[in-house]
């Protein structure tokens, strides 16, 4: 499966694969929506506003994970100079950026009824905005720096610096007093979310990961074609 990610293989990526992924996406999302909007119970304090969690938490998770991958890939990229890595990390950026935006907007919509404010400059929210800025910077460099090698270098450095922001986001709620509540799901202890609310959360996360995969594959193919066309042009 993974060898499909290599540049020469991605070009033979058929629409069949994308279409079947799309079918899975629709099925999972349908189930996820029914669970998150109808089957799952309201929260004992927050009532039905807790349902925003089912889009907010998975998108936040994916936005962090995407940037984490881009950052680590950028380190490998600068050290080993393997050609397909920048094309891959470049292809992850738009979807990661979109999920960061979704996370911030849905978080704001959740904040109003629970905290009583749309926005607060606490450590968690501020570091999420910084993540969004890093995504913007990364994408803009690829867009506006015309030389591939130059854009590759600058964007990699941006991604590596941005990587340091990730632990800050993750632990901001533990390091400082914040308005944002601490994590409910951690690796070290049992989740503090009741299982009836954990189910829709996991289904929605699965759906968003399938979506991420679809966007990534399409974008990666686009970027590979662009890269090869450029090469052909330069050879002429």
């Amino acid at each position: 499966m993974f060898k499909n990610f290599f540049p020469n293989k991605i070009l033979s990526l058929s629409n069949n694969l994308l279409n079947s992924l799309l079918v899975y996406l629709i099925l999972v999302m349908f189930l996820g929506l029914i669970y998150s909007l109808y089957i799952s119970p309201p929260d004992y304090i927050q009532g039905d506003s807790v349902r925003i969690m089912y889009v907010h938490v998975p998108s936040s998770f994916i936005s962090l994970a995407c940037f984490g991958i881009i950052g680590i890939a950028s380190i490998l990229n600068l050290v080993f100079k393997i050609k397909f890595i920048p094309l891959m990390s470049k292809s992850l950026a738009p979807v990661g950026c979109t999920f960061t935006l979704i996370s911030i907007v849905t978080g704001s919509l959740w904040g109003k009824p629970t905290w009583g404010t749309w926005w607060a400059w606490d450590a968690r929210l501020t570091s999420m905005v910084i993540l969004l800025l890093f995504y913007f910077g990364y994408i803009f460099v690829w867009k506006f720096v015309s030389s591939f090698n130059k854009a590759n270098k600058i964007s990699s450095i941006i991604a590596i610096i941005g990587l340091l922001n990730l632990p800050v986001i993750k632990y901001s709620v533990d390091w400082w007093n914040t308005l944002h509540q601490p994590s409910s799901i951690t690796l070290t202890s049992a989740p503090t979310i009741h299982y009836s609310m954990l189910i829709p959360l996991i289904i929605m996360l699965a759906g968003m990961i399938i979506y991420l995969l679809i966007i990534f594959l399409m974008k990666y193919k686009t970027e590979t074609i662009k890269f090869k066309m450029n090469k052909i042009k330069n050879k002429k």
């Binding site: 009532g47 349902r51 925003i52 889009v55 919509l109």
Partner: peptide, 10 residues
């Protein structure tokens, strides 16, 4: 009463 926040989010 939370529909005005939940629906826009989704």
């Amino acid at each position: 009463g939370y529909g005005q926040f939940v629906w826009p989010a989704f």
